[in-house]
Structure formats: structure tokens, C-alpha cells
Design a protein around this nucleic acid. Structure first.
Length: 660
DNA sequence: TTAGGGTTAG
């Protein structure tokens, strides 16, 4: 027998002493934890031998059922106690309430609450806190608040429970701060529990810095919970330097703090740093858990590192099924453009939630399988999973990227009625895209004017993109001006505007745009493409000659272009964003970063391997044509991921059907 | 004896 149990048995059997009910409960609880329910029952029976009154028997029986976690019997016994106006001790009730929580039995929880307050009886603060926590965990904040208002004595736990409750309710985060102030006015000192909760409620740097300095004064910033909350909130507010500084100041880690900092970089699209930290963590001797792997997968997803992602997948298999991790794995395969792996991961999932379905729908749509995405959406509805804001966005995205105008309009018009989702700015954006791509520019403009919320720069950029495709100069200039009113330093828009003027030979306007760009210090982000070869990431930037094999790559590229021209390839110079002429125009196109990356991939990877490229800007028409023809001529599979979607090139065609 | 931090889809 576990040694402390012997000692407890010694106490229980008593040598003449009768343990108080409180001690007996502790013993029963101890036995439940370390032995089993039968042993707990045995110790209750041992206690009962000393009890003679029937009321004591009823209470003891209730106690036993509570510790055995036999909810129906415990509730049944509770009714008897209620009839005889009997009460058990606080710890027994706390066991019962925890049991109600675990079984999601709110009805029984409310019954216990009623019992505790019947006949003018008032439970201790400790027990009221347990009840408070129960309502919070059931997300019944109004009931929690009502109970809190009734409490004659509120201690630091009562206040912290409410603060944590409001922090978790995103819409009510301001209340968490108000409660901290009220708590201080009430003379209650916050502790590490309070701070680790309230930190997440900070919505801006000033409030965070102020709170951080109060925490520093108490010295509680050394607490690991407070520290990881600090790292997390600084990174969520985009202050990664502060997050990393707090992390580095730490003397010893624990796993969650590592997870905080890895998650911070993975979410802030700095996957490289996240992966570096992951390696550092492993060197420091920590074993990754589900949260670590989820963040690591997200970093792979952001960087489109399929091979590394597959390695993480091997680690994932060592763990029990975890829905969040499974979803991250699914997204990784979708975003790395490997739909085959994504499909098998999706099929193998034990449990699927709205995120799993949405990830797969969006993944299919982005990879050019719009019809399949819509079919999956129908299966999702049939499975009983309710679509949300993002699911519908994925569905509309699928329609707009395949020119399915009627389907898109149907889903858009029925989303409120069928799924109870109000169309947001992003849904309108998808519709503007859908109509714009299909050449229905007037309808797209009308829709923008009908929007229930203000259009933003993204909405206008969508329209501008459609204007470029359908060569509507006037509307393009109008859209560009709308964008620049909202975002005066948007480099891409200036470049497009100057290009539109150049195509219309309006050289004075071109000069004017260039002048504004110079005066405002606007610089266009250079095109950059990445490719993973032998676990190394190779970056190609337009105009950058630093890659060690750049000369060989350029020679190979020029040769390929010559051979493609013999087969009828004509560079599409419409995409040149400068007012250059003839040969020069063609030359600036021929060194777009994705072309360099593709050629490098061809030189480095065996023919059966897919060449996978990720790039920071959208692919231009000329590179698209180049990739299609090259895929055919060289019998290669090429996948290019741009910031919006994927292009799978094979046998001279692209999965996007030249519609993007 | 009760309360706290990190992980997934646009």
C-alpha cells in the first residue's frame, strides 16, 4: 500500500481518536486519487462504523457517491439531504461540482447551487468560488456575475475567476481591466494568477507597458505563467523584440514558455526564426508536445517547406490524436500544394470540426479544385457541421477563382438565410472579385456601393486587379485613387497606376506618379521566390546576383527561353512594369525570380520530383506562360504558390485554367 | 480546498 495511506488508515482507525469530518474527507479523497473507488468506499465504511445517527449516514453516503464520481446517486442522495435539511462539507461539494463540470451536467450543477443556498444557508467563500468557476467554465457569464454580486466576501480567487472569465470572452475584454481596477479599490492584491489572466486582455501597447511595469514592481514577472503570458501578448501586439527579450531574460525554461515564443514567431510570419527556436529548444533538452508541433507545422506552412513538414508529421504520429494538431497538419499539406497528402490526412482524421472542413475546402479552392471544394462543402453540410464566416469565404473564393458566377451569387445571397451569417467586408470582396474577373465590372462597382460596411483598400485593389485584366483604364484609375486615399504608401498601386498611364502613352502622368513615389519614399517590394532543395532554402530576388550558381542558372534560363521560342513562346510584355522598349522589356521579364527558381529546381532535382516554388508577389502572365510551356517541354511538374493561390503546371496546362 | 500561460482555417 502507498505509504501515506498507511498513516491515514492509522488516523482513521483512530486508537480512540475520532477524526473530524473534514479530515475524513481528505482521507477519502486521497484514497480515491491513489488507490481506487473500492478503497475509497472501504474507508467511508470504516468511518460509518463510528457513526450512529441516520443523518450522519445520509451525509456519509452522499460523500461516498461524490468521491466515487457517481453523479446520479450523488444527486439522489442530495435530494434526501435537502429533505432533512442536511449539509455536507465544502470539499465534498467541490468534488460534486467538478464532476458536474466534467460531465457537462449544468442542470445538476444548478441543483447543487440551489441546495447550497436553501433555507438561508450560505456556503463559504471557497465553495462560492467553485460555483463561480463552474458557471464560468460553462460560459454562463451572466449567472457567474449574479453569483459574484451576491458574495459577501470576495477573495483574490473570486476576483481572478471573474477576470479570467472576461478575458476569455473576447467581446468583454475591457471588463477584465475594469475588474482589476475594482479589485484594487476593494483592497485585494492581485497575484500571479490574476496577472497571467489579465495580460491577455491588453488591447494596446500603452496599457500593456503600464501593466508590465506594475507586475515588475511585485516581482511576479518571474512566474512562468506570467512570463509566457507576457511573451504571448507582446508578440500578438506585433512587438516581437520585446517578446524575445523577455524570453531571453529567462534563467530556466519550461516547455510552455518555449511554445509561447515559437508560436509567436510562427504566427507573425517569421517561420525561419520559429524553426530556429524549435531547434534551440530541442538542443536545450526539451521534448516537443502537441502545441510545439502545431506551431512548428505552422512555420513550415508559412514557408511552404513540404519536406520539413513531412518530418514533423513523423513526430506527430508519436502522440495521441489531437484535433488542433491534425488541423495544422492538414493545412500544412494544403499550403505546401500537396493535395494528395492533404486528402489522405483529411480522410484519416478521427474527428472533424468546422476548421478541418474549412481548411480542406479552402485548400482545394486555392489549389484550383473549385468544383471539388463546392462538393466538399455539400458533404460538410450533410455531416451536420455548421459553416461559419470563414467557411463561406472559402466557398466564395472557390467560385471566384473558377468563374462560377451563378454558384457564387447563389451562396452569397443565401448565406444569411441558410447559415445565419451576415456578409462581411471579405465576403463582399470575394463577390467583387467574382464579378470583376468575369468582366462584370459595372456590377462589381455597384456591389461596392451597396456594401453594408465601408470598402477598404483591399476591396478597391480587388477591383483594380479586374480592371487590369479587362483593360478598363478609367475605372482602374478611379480604383487606384481610392486605394491611395486609404493607403497613401501602397507601392503596388503606384506601380500599376504608372503602368496604366504608360500603356496609354500618358508619359506626363507617369512622371507625376514617379515623383509622388519618390517624395513619399515609396519603394516597391522586389519579387522574391524560394525553393527547398536538400533541406536548404534557396532564395531568388529580382536583380540579386548573390546566389552561388546564378551564372549557370542564367545561362540555362537563356537557353531554355531560346528553345521555347522555337516552339512558339512569345514573351508577354504587358506585364512589364516599366516604360522600357522592345528587347529591354523582354529582358527584365526573363529574370523574374520565379523563372530563376524554376530553372534552379530543374538543375537540382531529379525529373520525377515536383518543383515547388513559393513567391511573395502574384505570378505574372509571362511567368505563367513560361511555366506551362516548360512543364510540357521538359516533362516536369511545377507548383507555384503566390500570396493568394496555387498553380500546378503539368503537360502544358495549369490547374487554375488560366483564370486567376 | 478554489482561480492562470502556449497550439488550427481567410
Amino acid at each position: 500500500m502507498y505509504p501515506p495511506i498507511r498513516l491515514l488508515d492509522h488516523i482513521i482507525k483512530g486508537r480512540g481518536t475520532t477524526p473530524t469530518r473534514w479530515i475524513r474527507c481528505i482521507i477519502t479523497r486521497f484514497r480515491t486519487k491513489f488507490l481506487n473507488a473500492a478503497a475509497a468506499t472501504e474507508s467511508c465504511t470504516a468511518v460509518n462504523k463510528n457513526s450512529h445517527s441516520s443523518s450522519s449516514l445520509i451525509v456519509d453516503e452522499f460523500t461516498r457517491f461524490c468521491y466515487q464520481r457517481d453523479l446520479p446517486r450523488a444527486i439522489h442522495a442530495l435530494h434526501s439531504m435537502q429533505k432533512y435539511k442536511l449539509w455536507a462539507d465544502s470539499i465534498t461539494y467541490s468534488e460534486l461540482i467538478q464532476c458536474c463540470l466534467a460531465r457537462r451536467a449544468i442542470h445538476h450543477g444548478r441543483l447543487v447551487h440551489k441546495h447550497l443556498f436553501s433555507y438561508g444557508h450560505r456556503p463559504k467563500t471557497f465553495l462560492m468560488n467553485i460555483l463561480l468557476n463552474m458557471y464560468v467554465k460553462f460560459k454562463l457569464l451572466e449567472e457567474a456575475q449574479a453569483l459574484f454580486d451576491q458574495m459577501p466576501d470576495r477573495n483574490v480567487v473570486s476576483w481572478t475567476t471573474m477576470i479570467a472569465a472576461y478575458t476569455n470572452a473576447t467581446m468583454l475584454r475591457d471588463k477584465a481591466f475594469q475588474f482589476l481596477i475594482l479589485m484594487l479599490r476593494d483592497g485585494i492584491t492581485p497575484n500571479m494568477f490574476t496577472y497571467s489572466s489579465v495580460l491577455r486582455a491588453c488591447n494596446g501597447l500603452p496599457s500593456l507597458r503600464q501593466l508590465h511595469s506594475s507586475i515588475m514592481k511585485t516581482g511576479l514577472d518571474s512566474d512562468v505563467f506570467v512570463r509566457s503570458a507576457l511573451i504571448d501578448i507582446y508578440s500578438k501586439l506585433g512587438e516581437l523584440h520585446d517578446a524575445l527579450r523577455i524570453f531571453n531574460e529567462m534563467v530556466t525554461g519550461d516547455l510552455v514558455v518555449w511554445n509561447s515564443i515559437i508560436g509567436a514567431f510562427a504566427q507573425n510570419t517569421d517561420g525561419d526564426e520559429a524553426l530556429n527556436l524549435f531547434r534551440r529548444m530541442k538542443r536545450a533538452g526539451f521534448l516537443a508536445d502537441q502545441a510545439t508541433l502545431t506551431s512548428t507545422l505552422r512555420a513550415c506552412t508559412g514557408l511552404a517547406l513540404l519536406e520539413l513538414g513531412r518530418q514533423v508529421h513523423v513526430h506527430v504520429l508519436k502522440f495521441h490524436r489531437d484535433l488542433i494538431l491534425d488541423n495544422a497538419l492538414l493545412d500544412m499539406y494544403c499550403k505546401c500544394g500537396s493535395l494528395k497528402d492533404a486528402n489522405s490526412a483529411f480522410t484519416r482524421m478521427g474527428e472533424k470540426d468546422v476548421i478541418s472542413w474549412s481548411t480542406m475546402i479552402i485548400g482545394l479552392a486555392q489549389n484550383g479544385f473549385s468544383r471539388e471544394a463546392l462538393q466538399l462543402f455539400e458533404s460538410m453540410k450533410a455531416s451536420g457541421t455548421k459553416p461559419n464566416y470563414i467557411t463561406v469565404l472559402g466557398v466564395l473564393f472557390a467560385c471566384s477563382h473558377a468563374g462560377l458566377v451563378e454558384d457564387g451569387q447563389f451562396y452569397f445571397q443565401s448565406m444569411r438565410k441558410c447559415f445565419g451569417i451576415d456578409p462581411g467586408r471579405e465576403h463582399y470582396g470575394c463577390m467583387v472579385d467574382l464579378l470583376g474577373r468575369a468582366g462584370k465590372l459595372d456590377e462589381a462597382v455597384n456591389l461596392i456601393h451597396e456594401m453594408e460596411c465601408e470598402p477598404d483598400a483591399v476591396t478597391w485593389r480587388t477591383l483594380l486587379g479586374a480592371c487590369r485584366v479587362h483593360r478598363n483604364t478609367d475605372l482602374a484609375i478611379y480604383s487606384a485613387k481610392q486605394i491611395l486615399n486609404l493607403e497613401s504608401k501602397d507601392a503596388g498601386t503606384y506601380v500599376i497606376l504608372s503602368n496604366i498611364y504608360a500603356n496609354s502613352q500618358r508619359w506626363e502622368d507617369v512622371a507625376q506618379v514617379r515623383r509622388v513615389m519618390r517624395d513619399q519614399g515609396v519603394r516597391k517590394e522586389p519579387g522574391c521566390s524560394w525553393i527547398e532543395v536538400n533541406k536548404q532554402i534557396h532564395a531568388f530576388i529580382l536583380g540579386d546576383m548573390s546566389h552561388p550558381q546564378i551564372e549557370a542558372i542564367n545561362m540555362e534560363l537563356n537557353q531554355l527561353i531560346r528553345r521555347l521560342k522555337e516552339l512558339g513562346y512569345v514573351p508577354d510584355t504587358d506585364f512589364v512594369l516599366q516604360d522600357l522598349e522592345g528587347e529591354q522589356k523582354e529582358d527584365s521579364l526573363s529574370h523574374h525570380s520565379e523563372k530563376l527558381a524554376i530553372v534552379f529546381g530543374m538543375m537540382s532535382l531529379s525529373r520525377e520530383k515536383t518543383i515547388r516554388i513559393r513567391k511573395n508577389l502574384r505570378i505574372c502572365g509571362d511567368c505563367h506562360l513560361f511555366a506551362k510551356l516548360l512543364a510540357k517541354m521538359e516533362h516536369r511538374n511545377i507548383v507555384i504558390r503566390d500570396p493568394v493561390r496555387y498553380h500546378h503546371f503539368s503537360s502544358g496546362v495549369c490547374s487554375c485554367g488560366d483564370y486567376w
